[in-house]
Write a protein that binds this DNA or RNA. Sequence first.
DNA 1: TAATCAAGTTGAACTTGTTCAACTTTTTTT
DNA 2: AAAAAAAGTTGAACAAGTTCAACTTGATTA
Lengths: 190, 190
Amino acid sequence: MINDLLIQNIEKSIQLSKTESEQLCSYFKQKVIQKKEFLLTQGSICKFEGFVLEGCFRIFTIDNKGNENTLYFAIKDWWLMDIDSFMNQKPSDLNIQALEDSKVLLINRKDKSILYNSIPIAEKLFRIMSQKAIVAWQRRLIRNHCQTAKERYHYFIDTYPRIASKLTDKQIASYLGITHEFLSKIKKTL
Amino acid sequence: MINDLLIQNIEKSIQLSKTESEQLCSYFKQKVIQKKEFLLTQGSICKFEGFVLEGCFRIFTIDNKGNENTLYFAIKDWWLMDIDSFMNQKPSDLNIQALEDSKVLLINRKDKSILYNSIPIAEKLFRIMSQKAIVAWQRRLIRNHCQTAKERYHYFIDTYPRIASKLTDKQIASYLGITHEFLSKIKKTL
DNA sequence: TAATCAAGTTGAACTTGTTCAACTTTTTTT
DNA sequence: AAAAAAAGTTGAACAAGTTCAACTTGATTA
């Protein structure tokens, strides 16, 4: 079934009944996005929470100096949104762009709110998923402080080989917070 | 009343009835911690979620090279815990140390679980608080990538003057991810 | 299949931040 | 109040990472 991947993802966090998971999935709508297309652009309001079924996305921001900084990448089985913009309906600082032809499941704000009301356990689900996300962000911050660019590069390609294989070095560099020229020099010193 | 601060903090995220907020507060136990004492040490399991009533804490980790890295500081009105260790009952990577004589409200795992069952809206509350935390961590990571140490220093003391005033420069440096010698040099070039 | 554009490489000069060691100042302990 | 410990400062040498420019290689597109 089309929603198997979403259900499996959810079940990493919580056990749902068949009815609950079917009902939950019913709020998500499939969308196909072409390579290079944007699901969200900086300045606009994020109207969805998304889950990737196929393809690859880059979530990045462009700062006032014009530098691109990649917050994260999302491939199959990853979630994708600007939480702040979605929660508070304010202009996003983020761009979400497809790096290849992709397929996502999207839920809009109204349906998300209906979902929370009709499936009480969904609050627990998203609470747990959010807490896991906090842990991941904290860890990444610490790695950024304690490790050199070279160590972070190797950590990234070792930990996320599936993602790394889809990316250009320029994209990886913008995720690591270094210039692509320096990444090129790092790779030479293997 | 003694729990006013906690209730006010919660009401930034969600509206509770008087009964709900009283019941919620009843699960938290007050604890006094002396300056320099540890509420959690690296390697042990985090048995609480905490909320600071008075004083100041530093949440930090020591990496394999022996460097201290400060994840965050918590003063009055901030939450404090190792989520990963608390959720999954696994050894913590974090130390939580009081920087002055302090007072906290603590809830243990058993009571937290009772709380979730007895006050259903608590799931929503902690879901929303967690999502806000994710936003904060994402922003901090981007600042770390896009800003120089000097810019990050000024951002920190401008944004959190109450916290900064309680800290030594060495502690601030370990939060910024730089050496205290370099922070000293930054301050000279004002 | 050419032409174009984006990605990747390299080097030289530069900036940012580290390390280590010596010293001064402030805080804590006795 | 003295002694000890911790925090902060400074300088010199160094390492990590950036910038810019020129070039090569690889992908797209017409």
